[in-house]
Nucleic acid binder design. Structure first.
Lengths: 354, 354
DNA sequence: CGTCAGCACTCTCGCAATGAGAGTGCTAGA
DNA sequence: TCTAGCACTCTCATTGCGAGAGTGCTGACG
C-alpha cells in the first residue's frame, strides 16, 4: 500500500505500467505461498486460494502478463510459477504492508535481554541468537566498532613476576584485556599506582594521542602503553561478526546440496559480508533489503539479505542483519531486524554515558 | 606395533586369535584407503595396493576371515568391504603407529599462537580454528573451567552516575566484566578505593568465601560483591564450547544429507557433547578415542570422537577434541589433538602464576 | 472487451526393466 | 597353501513409460 523506503536500487529502468489490483493480489499470493512451501504455484491453487472468484483460466492470463512484466518466472513449461527477484522486490516495497513484530515476541526478547548478565559480549551473542530465531534465518551481528574509541580506564594486574594483564575500558564500555611481559620484576605494588596515573593521564584520549605520550615513557609504562595503543587500534578495525541460526537455513531445500551449504558457511566466516554491507551503512534511514541479483557480489546472488545498523546517539557503531535464500520471509525478517536494531541502539546508548 | 593406551573399552569380550601379519596389512590398507576415498575396497585394489604379491583370490579369503572376526563388513554382496567400528579400533590401537604432527605443522601452529594477541578468549578461538585445520575435522574446545576459581583482582569503573563496570580477574587469568547499577550516584573517586580494598580483602578467595563477606557490606560494595559472586559461579559452571571447521565435515558424503548435517549442528550447539565427554576426563592418561557405537549416546553413533584434556600443573581445566564421521583420519586427528592439548596445557600453566 | 470452459501439448516425477561393471564365493588344480 | 576360473549377486546409470500437473490457445458467451 504505502511506498516504504526499503528499496535498494531500481533495477529496471523503464517505469512499468502500474499493476492492477488483481495482479497485485496474485503476486502477493504467489510470493507468500512460494515462500511457505518452496514449490511453484499453479493457477488452480491461486484460484482456490485468493478467493477472487475467477476461474484458473483467467488467472493464467494474468500470470502470463505478470511474467511479461518481469515479476514472475517459469522454471519449466509445466510446473507453476515463482517470483523473480523483481517480484520479491515489488512485494517488499508495495504488497507486504508494514509488519510489526508481535508484541508477545517483543516481550520475550526484552525478557531475554533483561535476564542476560550485563556483558557486552553476551549481548552480541544474544542478539545473534534472538534475531536468528525471530527471523527464522541466519543472523549476522557485528560487534560495535567505534571509529575513534577513547580510553576511559586502564587497569594493570600482576599475574607473575614478569607477566601482567593490561585491561582497558573504552568510551563505548567495551573491555579488552591483553597480557604483557615486563622486562623487569614488576609486582602489583608497582602496577597499581602506575595504572592510576595512566588512567588519569590518558582518559578521553584516542590511540593516536596515546601513542604520542609513549615517547617519554620507559619501563613497564612503555610496555603497557604499547599494548594499549595496539588494542585500541584493534577495536577500531575488528568488527568481529557473530552469526547464529545456521540450522534454520540448512533445512531449506536451497541448501540441501552440501556444496551450497559449504559456500554459505565460508561466506559467513569471511569478510565478504562486511565489505558488502558496510558501504551501504547510513545511506538509508532504516532497514535495507538486497534480493538475489541486487547484491553486488556474485556469491550472494542466490541470497536475500536484510540489514540495518545500530548506533549510539545516532552514530553508527555496528551492523546486524539476516541472511537466507532469496525465497525467504521478508516481512518477518524485516520486522525482526528493525526491532533488534532499535533495541541494540537503545541498549548501547543507555550504556554510553558521555 | 606397540600397544598404545588409546583404547576406550574392549567391545568384544572374547580374546580373539591374533591377526597374521598379512591380515594386519590388509586391514591397514582397507582403513587407510576407505578413509581417503569413502568407497568400499575390493580385492583387486588390495592386491595392487598392498604389494603383497598374492592374487586377489587369496586376498578374498583373508578378507572373509577378517569379516568373520568382526573387523570388516560387507554392505552389499558385491561392492567391496569397509571397516567395522571394531576394525577402526584395531587400527587405532595397533596399526596406526605413533604419528607425530610434522614439525613444519607444529611450527606453523606455534607461530600463530605467538602472533595472536595475548588474550585468553582469543586463545580458545585460535585453538579451535587451528585444531580444525590440522585434524581436518570439526574441532571442539572448551573454555577453561576452574573447579574453584579464586579471585585475584577486582576493578570498578564508573560508566555513568548510576552505572559501573565490575571487572574481575581470577587465578586462571580469566577476566570477566559485568555491568552494575548503583542505587546511588557513585563516581570513580568512590569506586577506586573501594576496588582496592575489595582486591586486598578478597584476594585468593572462592565464590563461597566471598559470599560470606557480603553479609557485612552495604551500598555499592554489596552490589559489587553480589556481581562478583555470581560471575565467579558462572565461571565454574560455564564451560562454553567453541567449535570450528564445520566446512571440513560438510564436504564429506556422510553429511551430504541436510538432515544429518543439521543434527550435527544441533549436537555442537547443545550440551550433549560436554556431558558425553566430561565423565571420561582424567581417566586415560592421554588422548581418548570413541568410535561409532562405542559412544554412549545414540546420537553419536555415527561419529568418531577424539578428545583430550588440558590443564594447569596437571589439574584438568578444559577439554578439546575433534569430531567427524566414523570414517575419519584417526592418526591425523589424534596427533593434532595430542599436540594441541599439550600446547594449551603449557600456555595455561605458563599463565598461571601461583 | 473481459471471462471462461475445453483441449491439446509439454514437462516432471516415480517406477520398472535392462545391461554393464564390480566384487564375491566356491571349486578344482598346482 | 596358493591360485585361476567361473557362476552368481548386487549396484548403478540409463531408458522407456504412464500418470499428473500446469500451461497456452481457441472459441463461445454476456
Amino acid at each position: 500500500m504505502n511506498e516504504s523506503p526499503l528499496r535498494a536500487n531500481q533495477s529496471s529502468g523503464k517505469a512499468p505500467q502500474p499493476l492492477t489490483e488483481r495482479q497485485r493480489q496474485i503476486l502477493r499470493f504467489v510470493v507468500r505461498e512460494y515462500v511457505a512451501s518452496g514449490r511453484p504455484i499453479g493457477s488452480r491453487a491461486l484460484a482456490a486460494g485468493t478467493g477472487l472468484g475467477v476461474s484458473p483460466a483467467t488467472i493464467r492470463s494474468e500470470m502470463a502478463a505478470l511474467e511479461e512484466l518481469g515479476y514472475l518466472q517459469h522454471l519449466h513449461t509445466s510446473g507453476g510459477r515463482i517470483p523473480t527477484d523483481q517480484g520479491y522486490r515489488y512485494f517488499v516495497a508495495n504488497l507486504m504492508g508494514d509488519i510489526e513484530l508481535p508484541s508477545s515476541e517483543r516481550q520475550t526478547i526484552l525478557q531475554q535481554f533483561r535476564e542476560a548478565e550485563l556483558q557486552l559480549d553476551r549481548w552480541i551473542e544474544l542478539a545473534a541468537a534472538t534475531l536468528a530465531r525471530a527471523a527464522g534465518n541466519v543472523s549476522v551481528v557485528s560487534a560495535p566498532v567505534a571509529q575513534l574509541p577513547r580510553l576511559r580506564h586502564v587497569e594493570l594486574v600482576a599475574l607473575q613476576p614478569h607477566l601482567g594483564l593490561v585491561i582497558i575500558v573504552t568510551s563505548t564500555g567495551a573491555v579488552r584485556q591483553v597480557m604483557a611481559h615486563w622486562t623487569e620484576d614488576t609486582g602489583q605494588e608497582i602496577l597499581s599506582p602506575l595504572a592510576d596515573s595512566l588512567s588519569a593521564a590518558l582518559r578521553g584520549l584516542t590511540a593516536e594521542e596515546i601513542e604520542a605520550h609513549a615517547a617519554g615513557a620507559s619501563g613497564a609504562a612503555l610496555i603497557a602503553l604499547a599494548h594499549i595503543v595496539t588494542a585500541m587500534r584493534g577495536m577500531a578495525t575488528t568488527g568481529a561478526l557473530r552469526h547464529s541460526g545456521l540450522e534454520n537455513v540448512l533445512a531449506q531445500p536451497e541448501f540441501s546440496d552440501a556444496a551450497e551449504a559449504q559456500e554459505l558457511l565460508s561466506l559467513l566466516g569471511g569478510e565478504l559480508f562486511l565489505s558488502a554491507m558496510l558501504p551501504r551503512l547510513g545511506e538509508g534511514p532504516d532497514v535495507q533489503v538486497f534480493i538475489g541479483k541486487e547484491n553486488p557480489e556474485d556469491k550472494l546472488r542466490r541470497l536475500g539479505i536484510v540489514v540495518s545498523t545500530y548506533g549510539i546517539n545516532g552514530e553508527v557503531v555496528g551492523v546486524l542483519g539476516v541472511v537466507g535464500p532469496t525465497r525467504m520471509a521478508y516481512g518477518r525478517s524485516i520486522s525482526s531486524v528493525r526491532y533488534m536494531a532499535r533495541l541494540m541502539s537503545d541498549l548501547m546508548t543507555d550504556l554510553n554515558g558521555e
